[in-house]
Every structure is written in structure tokens, then in C-alpha cells.
Amino acid sequence: MPQMNENRVCESQEMGRILARIAAEIVARNKGCQKLALVGILTRGVCLARRLQEIIRETFGQELSLGVLDITLYRDDLSRATHHPVLRKTEIPFSLDGATVVLVDDVLYTGRTVRAAMDGLIDFGRPQSIQLAVLVDRGCRELPISADYIGVEVPASPQDRVMVRVAESDGFDLVTVTPRSAFQGE
């Protein structure tokens, strides 16, 4: 359940509007593109990519392919990870060669996940271009990566916790920022 002292950035309705805007931007920017596809990064990126696919189908009548990417095998911190990695299944049921791929993730932070995701994608083929859509950009990049489509910008310090919850996996839609003091002593 949401905590008392977390700041709500956006809730369900707001999230719907944001996704609709991103969907429109994706369509506008890639007008005339023959092979446009969405690839969600597990776990919440996939939920968001599905919603974008649905919005684009209903609003613009375009059917985009959808892929699922697990970046565990491409992480650069495997040997330093204190938790034990859990591997899930990657599914890219279409050819990436020559495609324009929109990577979808919930939060853009250091950029390492996106770096790993691009490495992973390229192992499946040679896309024409890769674009990035994120629901939240919280700053604090460690790699030269920026998003093409941003839902909300939430400047947060590395100590803060930014969380995206989506109905598909969490039961409700919610983006929160919890300042450091709220979970000190955990």
C-alpha cells in the first residue's frame, strides 16, 4: 500500500493521459514508417508498452508489433549484484532488421538498463533506429542516454526512491517519490 509520507506524482487518470500523449508523439514522429515496433523492458516496461500498443491501435488504427526484453544477461553489475538474478523470458516475435524500435521502460535513471537493453536488442538483429519512451525521467544519468518520449520529469536525488506501480502487476496505477528520510533505518 502507498506510504503516508510519499509524494504522489501521478495517479491512474493522469497516467492514462500521459500515455495517450506519448502514443500520439510516437505516431507523429514515425509517420510513414513501415516497420514500427514496441519493445518493453521487463517487468513494468512491458505493461506500459502493451498500453501504448492498445492506444495506438484504437486511436490511430495502427497495429504495432510488441516485444518483451529481459536485460538480466546484459547487465553490467551481475558480479556485484547482491541479490540473485532471476532470469525471465525474452520474446521478440518479429524481425528487427530495418525496424524502428521504441524501447519502453517505466523509469529512466542511470541509463544502464537502457544501455543493456540496446545491447540485447542488437543481438536480435539490426534495427534501423532505436527510440526510447519512459514514463518517468528522474535524472541522475551515469551514461550519455536520453529519452525521446518522456511522461513526466521528476528531479530526484539518488537517495530518493521513485516507484512506478501499474495495475497489471500492482493492482493500481501510481507514481510516487519517497524522500530519503521516509525509509531511513530500513
Partner: peptide, 23 residues
């Protein structure tokens, strides 16, 4: 079951044109 589920995920790599991951 953890080992089997992980293995299930690795099956897909054998079907890729580029059968290598940097893990």
C-alpha cells in the same frame, strides 16, 4: 524449479541468429 525456469528462458537464445549473451 528455479533452475528449470531459468533454463526455460535460456532455450530462446539457441533460436537467435546470434547465439551469445554477455552475461
Amino acid at each position: 524449479r528455479t533452475l528449470l525456469e531459468s533454463a526455460e528462458s535460456f532455450k530462446e537464445i539457441a533460436e537467435r541468429p546470434l547465439k551469445k549473451v554477455p552475461a
